[in-house]
Amino acid sequence: MRPLKKAIFAGALLATSSFSHSGLIGVQHVVITSALAAMGNSEGYIQVGEFEAFETGSGINVAHQANGGSASSLSFWGGHPPMQAIDGDFSNIFHSRGNTTSEFLRVDFSAITELSSINIKGRSTGFNHRDLFNIEFFDASGGSLYQALNVDARNGLTTFGLPNTKTDPGSVPVPATAALFLVGLAGVTASQSRKTKKA
């Protein structure tokens, strides 16, 4: 294989690897709030029967407490603490004590991860009209990566896929782009050098 062709082939492999991800990259924690509270509705209690977050590739639910997930909140009602939202038991719920915009359910992962999708289940025993959520995804420094508004779990379990961080061509990492360019340049230089020697 000629040097230029080798360079193009190597560059193609590099470009392919730079697009190998297929989810939201760099997620450290998620914050769930009530969409109704944000609208000023007095029914803005947070009720979460279960929250699941699936790692890209492995499909592991990294939110589950058995996989290192942890949950916290501003308050909770009676015997419905935040950890009940990530315990794998769909029959119990987390329930906030308050109904204002200051209430939240936060789920932290044991490591920074790439997520492909999430599931969220609301309350199945009445009052499910409250189960409209805003869900925000954060990186390790507390920066917002993505926000999903008005996620509707009023009819049970809701699943939705997360955006592919690498979908936008403008999001291709600069180091990968530079490396691709250098590989191509090296191939052209080698090809020209070979032609000069033959002459």
Rank of each mutant, 00 (worst) to 15 (best):
S110D: 12
G143Q: 09
G143S: 15
I112D: 10
S75T: 15
H80G: 01
I118L: 14
D139E: 09
S116W: 01
G78N: 14
G79T: 12
V107T: 08
F137M: 08
N92Q: 10
L74M: 05
T100S: 15
E114Q: 13
T101P: 02
S117Q: 10
S73Y: 03
T113Y: 05
F127E: 04
G78L: 09
G143I: 02
H95G: 07
N134Q: 10
S144I: 10
P81V: 03
F137Y: 13
D139I: 00
E114S: 15
S91M: 07
S75N: 11
G156F: 01
S110Y: 08
N134R: 10
E136F: 03
H129Y: 11
P81G: 03
M83P: 03
D87I: 12
T113M: 05
E114Y: 04
K121T: 09
P82M: 11
G122R: 01
D139G: 05
W77V: 00
R154N: 09
S75K: 06
L105V: 04
L132G: 03
A71F: 01
F90G: 04
G88A: 12
G88C: 10
A71L: 03
E136M: 09
S102V: 01
S73R: 06
R123S: 03
F90R: 14
D87M: 10
N155S: 15
N92S: 15
V151Q: 15
E136I: 10
S102G: 07
S96Q: 00
I120A: 05
I120W: 02
N128K: 07
